[in-house]
């Protein structure tokens, strides 16, 4: 086993189970649709709220897509073999999260302009929304992988994972929607983007180590 062969295997496996990614994207769509249906379909409400709505939907669908990322590997004993492979487990985890991120973020970026139009987001804010997604979503995936690893041994861990992981998403969501609001009000937003990037970078350092600690503790 090498890092490259693991990367290839993960890409292939995710490609074979692409329905999962599609489900997560449909979930994203459903959450977005809930807001105009449940609260107010008028542009007055939606236009300033669009960034926040999209970010909440992204955060939830990321959790949904990550919840089962280690489950089958755990049951089949793949995680055991990864630990015993002699390769560094944090790097393997980083590869896996990276593959998941790549598979989710591209379709999300395609969906974003459509939904920002449907939510009446002013078109000059769209680029900020896309930048926050690009900078913030790695953080979501990295933090989420810790939660997925924590609950891997549970048959029904989705609820617990949401409870554990969502609080850690709050800063990213707050700063992202604040950046989008800032650009709508004509205020500077560069600092907020830098904060989002900082959180993602911090997660990049912490998450693979924490994830592999959880995996090692779960595989016994």
């Amino acid at each position: 086993m090498t890092y490259l062969s693991y990367f290839k295997a993960e890409c292939l496996a995710l490609f074979r189970t692409k329905q999962r990614v599609v489900n997560a994207l449909l979930f994203f769509v459903m959450v977005v649709v809930l807001f105009p249906l449940g609260i107010d379909p008028s542009a007055d409400f939606l236009s300033p709220a669009a960034g926040g709505i999209i970010w909440c939907a992204v955060a939830l669908s990321v959790i949904v897509s990550l919840e089962s990322m280690f489950k089958e590997n755990y049951v089949d004993g793949v995680l055991t073999q990864l630990i015993l492979s002699g390769l560094s487990l944090p790097w393997l985890m980083l590869i896996k999260v990276g593959v998941y991120w790549g598979a989710m973020v591209l379709p999300l970026l395609i969906l974003t302009p459509i939904f920002s139009e449907m939510l009446f987001l002013p078109s000059d804010s769209l680029w900020v929304l896309i930048s926050t997604l690009l900078l913030g979503s790695p953080g979501l995936f990295l933090i989420g992988s810790i939660g997925a690893a924590l609950t891997v041994s549970l048959k029904q861990g989705a609820m617990l994972m949401v409870l554990l992981i969502l609080p850690f998403y709050f800063p990213i969501i707050i700063f992202s929607s604040a950046a989008i609001k800032a650009v709508q009000l004509g205020m500077p937003y560069g600092g907020l983007l830098a904060l989002i990037a900082a959180i993602s970078l911090l997660a990049l350092v912490v998450s693979p180590v924490m994830t592999s600690l959880c995996i090692k503790a779960s595989v016994r």
């Binding site: 090498t2 490259l4 693991y6 074979r16 089958e72 089949d76």
Partner: peptide, 20 residues
């Protein structure tokens, strides 16, 4: 006890993952 194989892949793909 666990077979240590990725259920989404074919037999060949699993082997070439272990022995690239």
């Amino acid at each position: 006890h666990g077979v240590g194989l990725n259920a989404a892949l074919t037999v060949m793909e699993n082997l070439s993952w272990y022995f690239p």
